[in-house]
Computed example of a mutant assay.
Amino acid sequence: MDGVHDLGGKQGHGPIDVHEPVEPFHSEWEARAWALSKSIGGGAPDITIDWWRHVRETTIPVDYLTRPYLDSWLETDMVTLVDSNLCTVEELATGKSATPAATKAISISVADAIAMNRASATDFSRPFESKPKFVAGNQVIAHQNTSPGHTRLPGYVRGRTGKIYEHHGAHLFPDSVAKGIDKAEHLYTVAFAARDLWSESQNSTDVIFLDLWESYLDSR
């Protein structure tokens, strides 16, 4: 989505702290938030990851920018659960279910939980009959189009020239899947020179690699 939720390449938010502690969570509630999110699969079972991201991107800007990261995750999970009629706002507010349990609760070990999480990875690749529009080495330019919904095309590369680094076959197209449309497109890794993206990087040799779908790109 275009707006405050697309923070990539934006200025004015201060330096990024690259000296985070080695512990995976800052406090106990974050660990519990992570566990809750993973235990319900990141939201209601009838939604896709792209719809989940779209829901998160509808958070009002001041809330999105000030709410802790994993707290924002939980907020999104809860919205999708209510939207899918799996629970009510009242149940979430009280922490007590007002409906019979759908299944019997089970107890599993941490090792089993980790194994289940690893086994739950989703393959988003799809067979595709049409040939890719681009091959490695082609010069491309990213679209400048804005998007009223979810998109994986960050604002800082729009209208900028890059080079196809690799083709990955066809994968589900997030912009469509977020709307419930099962559509696939060719997916590429595109290399952008940092000096072509930000004026203060004119002497930089850094390169940014982004995975972008075919409809995001035009021939240069």
Rank of each mutant, 00 (worst) to 15 (best):
89 V>E: 14
168 H>P: 03
19 H>K: 03
87 C>H: 08
94 T>E: 08
92 L>C: 05
46 D>R: 02
166 E>V: 09
68 P>Q: 06
193 A>S: 10
16 I>C: 03
87 C>T: 15
177 V>D: 11
157 V>L: 01
136 A>E: 13
171 H>M: 14
158 R>H: 01
185 E>N: 14
86 L>P: 07
214 E>M: 05
49 I>F: 04
130 S>G: 05
95 G>D: 09
26 H>P: 02
203 N>A: 10
190 V>D: 09
146 T>C: 05
201 S>Q: 01
19 H>E: 04
190 V>I: 15
46 D>V: 01
57 E>M: 10
171 H>T: 12
159 G>T: 12
3 G>Y: 04
202 Q>R: 10
31 A>D: 04
28 E>P: 01
141 I>E: 07
123 D>T: 02
12 G>Q: 05
78 M>R: 11
154 P>N: 06
86 L>C: 06
165 Y>D: 14
32 R>P: 00
31 A>E: 10
62 V>W: 09
51 W>G: 01
185 E>R: 15
157 V>C: 06
47 I>S: 10
11 Q>I: 00
55 V>G: 03
39 S>H: 11
75 E>W: 11
109 S>H: 13
216 Y>F: 11
15 P>K: 05
25 F>S: 02
54 H>Y: 12
31 A>C: 05
9 G>T: 01
68 P>E: 07
105 A>P: 15
25 F>N: 06
196 D>P: 04
108 I>H: 14
61 P>L: 00
167 H>V: 05
17 D>E: 04
151 T>V: 08
29 W>V: 12
119 A>P: 13
1 M>L: 05
44 A>M: 03
49 I>V: 11
136 A>K: 14
4 V>Q: 02
56 R>L: 07
15 P>M: 04
98 A>R: 04
203 N>M: 08
189 T>D: 12
94 T>F: 07
87 C>M: 15
116 M>K: 15
131 K>W: 02
10 K>D: 04
68 P>M: 07
31 A>M: 05
184 A>D: 12
212 L>N: 06
39 S>T: 14
150 H>A: 12
25 F>G: 04
31 A>S: 07
112 D>H: 13
54 H>A: 09
26 H>K: 09
185 E>A: 12
121 A>V: 15
200 E>Q: 11
162 G>E: 01
167 H>N: 07
10 K>N: 04
63 D>P: 00
127 P>G: 12
153 L>A: 00
77 D>K: 05
166 E>D: 08
60 I>S: 11
202 Q>E: 10
156 Y>R: 07
78 M>I: 03
104 K>L: 15
80 T>E: 10
45 P>T: 09
109 S>L: 12
30 E>M: 06
192 F>H: 01
149 G>E: 00
69 Y>M: 06
34 W>K: 06
218 D>K: 09
199 S>Q: 13
73 W>M: 07
91 E>H: 05
157 V>T: 02
135 V>Y: 01
163 K>T: 15
105 A>L: 15
85 N>M: 05
18 V>E: 03
134 F>V: 08
124 F>W: 13
